[in-house]
Amino acid sequence: MTTPEALTVSEVQAALRLGKTKVYELIRSRELPSFTVGRSRRIDPADLHAYIRKQKKEN
Rank of each mutant, 00 (worst) to 15 (best):
M1I: 13
M1A: 15
M1L: 15
M1N: 11
M1F: 15
M1K: 09
T2S: 08
T3C: 15
P4S: 01
P4Y: 09
P4C: 03
E5F: 10
E5K: 15
E5H: 03
A6P: 03
A6N: 14
A6Y: 09
A6E: 05
L7E: 06
L7A: 03
L7Y: 07
T8F: 00
T8Y: 04
T8S: 04
S10V: 08
S10M: 12
S10G: 12
S10K: 13
S10D: 15
E11C: 13
E11N: 13
E11K: 07
V12K: 02
V12A: 02
V12G: 00
V12N: 04
V12L: 13
Q13W: 04
Q13N: 11
A14H: 13
A15Y: 05
L16N: 04
L16I: 12
L16R: 09
R17M: 05
R17Q: 02
L18H: 14
K20L: 06
K20T: 02
T21S: 14
T21P: 06
T21Q: 10
K22I: 07
V23I: 15
V23H: 03
V23Q: 04
V23G: 02
V23K: 10
Y24T: 01
Y24V: 02
L26D: 05
L26N: 04
L26Y: 06
L26I: 06
I27D: 06
I27R: 04
R28H: 01
R28T: 02
S29A: 12
S29E: 15
L32M: 03
P33A: 03
P33G: 05
P33D: 08
S34N: 05
S34K: 06
S34Y: 04
F35A: 00
F35T: 01
F35M: 00
T36N: 12
V37W: 05
V37P: 05
G38K: 09
G38I: 07
R39V: 07
R39Q: 10
R39N: 12
S40I: 11
S40V: 13
R41F: 01
R41E: 01
R41S: 01
R41M: 03
R42P: 03
R42W: 10
R42S: 09
R42D: 11
I43Q: 03
I43K: 04
D44L: 02
D44A: 07
P45Y: 01
A46R: 11
D47G: 07
D47V: 10
D47F: 08
L48M: 14
L48E: 09
L48G: 06
H49T: 13
H49V: 12
H49R: 15
A50P: 05
Y51G: 02
I52H: 03
R53W: 11
R53I: 04
K54S: 11
K54D: 00
Q55I: 07
Q55E: 09
Q55F: 06
K56Y: 10
K56Q: 11
K57M: 14
E58L: 11
E58A: 11
N59V: 14
N59R: 15
